[in-house]
């Protein structure tokens, strides 16, 4: 069957046609009904097997659209490598976070520091090294620009189900404190850990939509 007319010939509204009626209900009405999430329930539609079948078909054609595009996308695995590299290169070259975490001047006329982003990366790294943990958010509370000023580290983590939680917080504290001691001069007075999520042992890729 050939596709319908070109767009340029289209009148202002859908052309009425006997094909558009399902058990006396216009297809457009079924479309709108589906868009509304089938609420409020319409007994005329829900009571008609033909209408319910049509609703199923409408649902299916929507799902298949996206699925077919994903299927096409999956066919050529290396196809996107180039623009993805370009993207990551651009991101790497971007504005350096202006807020730096300073270190004591090693000599007159010399200033050394880490960026806040570097420190957050360190925190993620330290936390990820704890088995079954993925760090999802990091925060430094306190004035990081003042030497010796007390700083609290806040971490939000995702934990794999089964990992003992009591030991976890301690392990994270040890890891984080050690990393910051090695790479910064921050005076870390506390490490607060929030367990944001517990996930099953084999989490599915793609996750929830």
């Amino acid at each position: 069957m050939t596709p319908p007319d070109d767009a340029s010939a289209v009148p202002d509204g859908p052309r009425p046609s006997p094909d558009d009626l399902v058990d006396g209900v216009p297809l457009e009405e079924l479309v709108d009904y589906l868009d509304r999430g089938r609420e409020p329930r319409d007994p005329r539609i829900e009571g008609s097997p033909a209408c319910r079948l049509a609703l199923q078909a409408l649902q299916r054609v929507s799902e298949l659209t996206l699925e077919s595009l994903q299927h096409e996308a999956d066919r050529d695995p290396g196809r996107d490598d180039r623009w993805i590299s370009g993207l990551m290169g651009t991101i790497a070259r971007e504005v350096v976070d202006g807020r730096a975490v300073p270190l004591a001047a090693p000599a007159p006329g010399v200033g050394t520091a880490l960026t806040k982003a570097a420190v957050r990366g360190l925190l993620r790294r330290a936390g990820d090294a704890v088995d079954g943990v993925l760090v999802t958010a990091t925060e430094l509370v306190g004035d990081v620009t003042v030497p010796e000023a007390p700083v609290t580290v806040r971490l939000a983590v995702t934990v794999r189900y089964g990992v003992p939680l009591a030991d976890l917080a301690d392990a994270l504290r040890v890891a984080v404190t050690a990393a910051l001691a090695r790479h910064t001069e921050l005076n870390v007075v506390a490490v607060d850990v929030t367990i944001a999520d517990v996930v099953p042992p084999a989490e599915e890729p793609g996750g929830a939509r």
Binding site: G162, A179, R182, P201
Partner: peptide, 13 residues
């Protein structure tokens, strides 16, 4: 992956 009670890694290694 075996659940261990934390790595107690020294010095952020």
């Amino acid at each position: 992956m075996v659940a261990r009670t934390g790595p107690v890694r020294r010095d952020g290694e």
